[in-house]
Amino acid sequence: MEEQAESGIVKKFLYVNRRAPHGSIYAHEALEVVLIAAAFEQDVTLAFIDDGVYQLKKNQDTADINTKNFSKIYSALEGYDVEKIFVEKESLDERGLKEDDLSVDVEIISSNDMKKLITASEVIFNF
């Protein structure tokens, strides 16, 4: 995009990610959609729930499965001013993951706070 987004309506978008990264195209596609929304300066929030938390696992290396290592893109989100990244604690706990296992800075929140986040968003996209 060469022009700044024209001053339009800014809505609170929530992108809910519930799938593991490499078994389907959803996680990568979600990122593409998020980057487009961010390029148009929308108010973007990401939520990682259930197997979606595996998307943020650090040290992913896809060289031997011949796919693009899109996990690196999560680190670019900050440059796109996407800084509201929330991970549900219960989903992490169930999978034996800790904050240290994640590739980017996130906010780990309880189910109860995740509930509030979903309720407070204006438009929800599910992946």
Binding site: M1, L35, K68, N69, K72, I73, S75, A76, G79, Y80
Partner: peptide, 8 residues
């Protein structure tokens, strides 16, 4: 580093 071409 990031596997994307950045927006301007």
């Amino acid at each position: 580093e990031y596997q994307i071409a950045p927006a301007v």
